[in-house]
Design a binder for these strands. Structure first.
Lengths: 339, 339
DNA sequence: ATCATTAATGCAAAGCTTTGCGGAAAGCTT
DNA sequence: AAGCTTTCCGCAAAGCTTTGCATTAATGAT
């Protein structure tokens, strides 16, 4: 049962030499004679020896594990970022252990605790949508545990972070709508505790102002980021005395919900109502009409997150926030026929 | 640096007692007096002691890690199955380490090797689409390493597996089409080395036969499971002298590709051509028209996979293949107006 | 032949936990 | 008071690896 892996001791016994000699032979230590090295290496390969990471971890006091906590695993956005993180982690000899908070603050705290118990050397976290307190993150900072946050972040002065140019992108969406001839532009936001909500909201108002549109509080709705709640929010907008002729959501799941509600109301996209999403999921291409959306370079974002993480390990590191540029990809859903 | 975690030794030193006493006190060993237990436990909580899993792993010769290798992470199907596996794993005190083969056989083999080096106690694998040899799996079997496969499986007599009722479901799709009035029913399959390809193909022909349709080899196309290749396959079908009036794909990504090609050809779904998918992704609801699709209970499937894995750990276990029932969810894309 | 180098290898500790066994002190019996 | 049983605790080994230091043998120098 426990004998599936062979150890230095096994090799040593078989060759009738000491463990230290085996260890040194495998690492080409100058003290060991050439013949001995060859003999040892040959047997090691034959027996398929691989060093035991548990023993190494114990000795070196490091696990080379890095813990990732994301709100869910089934969203393309997170999955792709994780892939990016893993690619850089692997390059640095680390590997990622992934936990999902299921958008739940309790589970988020538990996941962090469990990863710490498993002796990860640091954490990369994207807050759940419920997370409205930050003490569990402050505790990590005060315990000197390496931590990088992304997308939904907090405590930017203490915790290094990677985020999108949320306000900018949001403003550009409004301006894009305006340029396409839309005038009553609505926005469906997410929970107020999330940084992305705040920043994208800021961009919305900036865009409205930049376009010289009279601001209308009624055109801003909230949802809890689910497909269903987005539909509900859209229905509220549609029942306004003066409903919007354009709408965008805080992410693509929300945008899909908006589209569904619009279609169910018998309205046409993009002619009756224009729609734009945020966070380009694969399926923006698939829906009809194809969804205009803000593209996050998710894989690269993941790589940057990991790079920032490793940078944060160096002594004297000061927390910084990296902002990645997004791009508005125009497709059919916001292409109003000029009338 | 290495002093972020405190050990039994730290507690022992602080209380001026031996390490063994601390260890036993924390586990309520009868040899330890009540007062001593209380004193130790109090300090342990105060200092936030958690046992070092590396040391435990080394001692007990177990890591409680289980390795998962999937073709990709960004597909809802796999992400959801992983969640299911993790939920059961956690219950049993195990945690999952996830690796992606990126649909690449080399990377698949590497991932398996790396997980083994990391001392996972067993593996759960879904083959990449390129995987046409099975020797690396046979090696695992002969090395007595616990292994469970799912969805795309092989060596069913030696390796426990969890799969969908592929042939059945496939046949039901054909019959569903027939019942809806479609007569020239096409099928776009995947790489022939994959079990799902073979089984769903078998179901296709069974369905054709059951409906009394004259078989037509031309109505069966292949693709490599990507969106693009599915589009290409569909275009070939559309250029047939006698093109199909219904088509289904081996999974939903393929189905989306089919839909795209059909739309680009200016044909209407479901009236000109009916479409059905396989493996119900979230977005089947979002596309227009909503996609009729075969639902896998993915989360539950993940749970069953994990349960089978733990069952396979028990002595005397014989490989078995679990077949999970799927369900055909009728939506708009196959609902031809009766004419 | 003796001493000093050099080369090649082994010993042992550290990192953390569990656990069988031995040991000391206290209480009890007679 | 001597012997025995409890009660409570510490020693040490095992699991695997790395590495400073010690050891052995052999070579070269004088």
């Amino acid at each position: 049962m426990g004998s599936r892996h062979i150890s230095l001791k096994d090799l040593a016994r078989e060759l009738n030499i000491s463990i230290s000699t085996v260890s040194r032979a495998l690492k080409d230590h100058p003290d060991i004679s050439r013949e001995m090295k060859e003999k040892v290496k040959k047997l090691a390969i034959e027996r398929n020896y691989t060093p035991n990471p548990l023993a190494m971890g114990l000795l070196k006091q490091e696990t080379r594990m890095i813990g990732i906590v994301v709100p869910d695993l089934v969203t393309h956005f997170y999955a792709s970022i994780i892939s990016g993180i893993e690619s850089v982690a692997k390059e640095n000899g680390y590997f990622a252990v992934i936990a999902s908070s299921n958008e739940n603050i309790i589970k988020e705290k538990e996941s962090i605790e469990n990863l710490l118990k498993a002796r990860v050397e640091g954490l990369i976290v994207c807050m759940s949508r419920e997370t409205n307190t930050t003490d569990h993150f402050e505790k990590l900072v005060s315990r000197d545990i390496p931590l990088v946050m992304f997308d939904r972040v907090c405590l930017g002065d203490k915790i290094p972070a990677v985020i999108a140019d949320n306000a900018d992108a949001s403003q550009k969406i409004v301006e894009h709508f305006y340029a396409k001839g839309y005038r009553r532009i609505a926005y469906v936001s997410g929970p107020e505790n999330l940084s992305i909500s705040k920043e994208r909201m800021k961009g919305y108002w900036a865009g409205i102002k930049a376009c010289g549109i009279t601001p209308d509080e009624n055109l801003v709705e909230n949802c809890d980021l689910t497909f269903e709640s987005a539909k509900t929010a859209m229905n509220r907008l549609l029942q306004l005395p003066n409903p919007p002729d354009a709408v965008y959501g805080i992410n693509d799941t929300v945008a899909f919900g908006l589209m569904k509600a619009i279609k169910e109301a018998g309205l046409k996209i993009p002619d009756d109502i224009g729609v734009v999403g945020f966070t380009d999921e694969f399926h923006s291409v698939v829906v009809t009409p194809a969804l205009t959306s803000v593209t996050h370079p998710t894989f690269e974002m993941g790589q940057q997150i990991a790079q920032l993480f490793f940078k944060s390990l160096t002594p004297g590191f000061q927390a910084e926030t990296l902002i990645v540029k997004t791009q508005l990809v125009e497709r059919e859903s916001s292409n109003k026929s000029q009338s």
